[in-house]
Design a binder for these strands. Structure first.
Lengths: 249, 249
DNA sequence: ATATGAAAAATTATCGAGAAGTTTAGGATC
DNA sequence: GATCCTAAACTTCTCGATAATTTTTCATAT
């Protein structure tokens, strides 16, 4: 592998001396996949942006082949669209799509929680408590201007919700839930300034935790539905999805 | 490994003079995607088969790049696994995976049917009746030895079930349902000699149709659950998933 | 026999170039 | 000025070659 400029924003390629431990970082396709997905989720690559090869090659410092493979995977994950002979586009967003997605998420989360509450053992409970605690800590010293702090919150929020359903044994359900989660995350990040985390998110999470401990399925169904709905409403109120305009690169 | 009687099984490449009308057949990636998916579904490519590039190139007469892109998409669809630096494998099967998948399908089909029954109009009803009628016709002159007849039945069965949920307006739900349907179809074809269609499938379909016309949601929930469960039981009884053996190419 | 290890064979992952197709730009015609 | 046509410019898509592994083979030592 030759010496490249790599002045781009996403340091994809491995550093000179790197720990040969990562699961699959050795593959450029994987690196491209992670980098592009992250950029789409974070809004760095905005909806409807044409993903031109030349641009991508410069941006990620990766050849066209691994990039195309990564994009192909993202197509199946609904983050990218493939236009028949005209390359790839960042999947568009719309309020109605988010409405739709939120409904599906409700269905999947409820089912996953039902199973988790039925099967969860002490370790499961402990993992939730731990994630909850850590999430609160991160939230205390949260700084909306510090990129790292924001990322840390995103990660912990996700870990908490993952912990809740982690006792669910259905791989299919969890995979499907995860796909939906990712796309939903995109809407949240696109529309909600991270500042508005404050909400009552902490209170909501606490209620979820308690319902989980009590194995109160019907309550947790209501809570998770409201949790997701609250996010939807915030996105709706943000007004950032009001234009159906077809933005371009 | 070279003695693969692949001849002509999958005529992927376009014939000399062809109608430039197809939606996307112009893309070799798309052709490869369709062909490989079909071969995995039909069992032509058996579970755990290593998908070696040379083999694939000969088999489909397509270069490595489009093949890799197609495989990348199938990874996201759970039909193919990507081994970090060792290529691709046809996703394995197991009874427990099918159990899991069937449960997810119940959840998705029930929700989709709820929405369809709530929103369906006259045209929706007509489409169901039409598909039901056509399915029965195909079933009457069904010949398990005629490849075309088998494919025709598969297609019509699918069209009937698609018609039932077609009034559901949730694109996310339908997409997700479709992914699950495809993987489920693989299990059915892998394990059930098409001869056993006979079952009471016709009766079951008729009941589904009637419940749809009556907009009887709770009944159709029970019916679709039993329908899927019956298929699961058949697969289970076939005993073809008893071995966990790791087959190879 | 079993384990060790280096060389050979096989296979994947990646790049660069070229063919196929799409978009843009600039007239010519009505 | 608007529409249609053609040529240039640009992109995507695909192939073949090459680098970077992984797997196999086989001789050697325990």
């Amino acid at each position: 592998m030759a010496n490249r400029p790599n002045q781009g924003r996403s340091p994809v390629r491995a550093a000179p001396g790197w720990n040969a431990e990562e699961p699959d970082s050795s593959s450029l396709t994987q690196a491209a996949l992670d980098a592009i997905r992250e950029d789409i989720l974070s809004g760095e690559l905005t909806p409807n942006t044409r993903l031109r090869m030349q641009m991508l090659r410069e941006r990620y410092d990766i050849g066209a082949s691994p990039l195309r493979e990564a994009l192909s995977r993202l197509v199946s994950d609904n983050l990218v669209l493939s236009l028949q002979r005209r390359g790839f586009v960042v999947a568009p967003v719309s309020l109605s799509d988010f409405r739709d997605l939120t409904n599906l998420r409700k269905l999947l989360e409820k089912e996953a929680l039902s199973q988790a509450l039925a099967r969860g053992d002490d370790r499961w409970e402990a993992a939730i408590v731990a994630a909850f605690h850590q999430l609160n800590r991160v939230q205390e010293r949260f700084d909306p201007n510090d990129r790292n702090s924001v990322v840390a919150w995103e990660d912990m929020n996700r870990e908490f919700h993952d912990a809740l359903v982690s006792a669910c044994k259905s791989a299919w359900l969890l995979r499907t839930r995860n796909t939906a989660y990712i796309c939903s995350e995109r809407y949240r990040r696109l529309c909600l300034s991270i500042t508005s985390i404050s909400r009552d998110v902490k209170a909501e999470h606490k209620q979820l935790l308690e319902a989980a401990m009590d194995r109160d399925v019907s309550t947790i169904h209501v809570l998770i539905s409201e949790h997701l709905e609250a996010t939807f409403r915030k996105v709706e109120e943000s007004g950032k999805l009001d234009e159906v305009a077809l933005e371009q690169d």
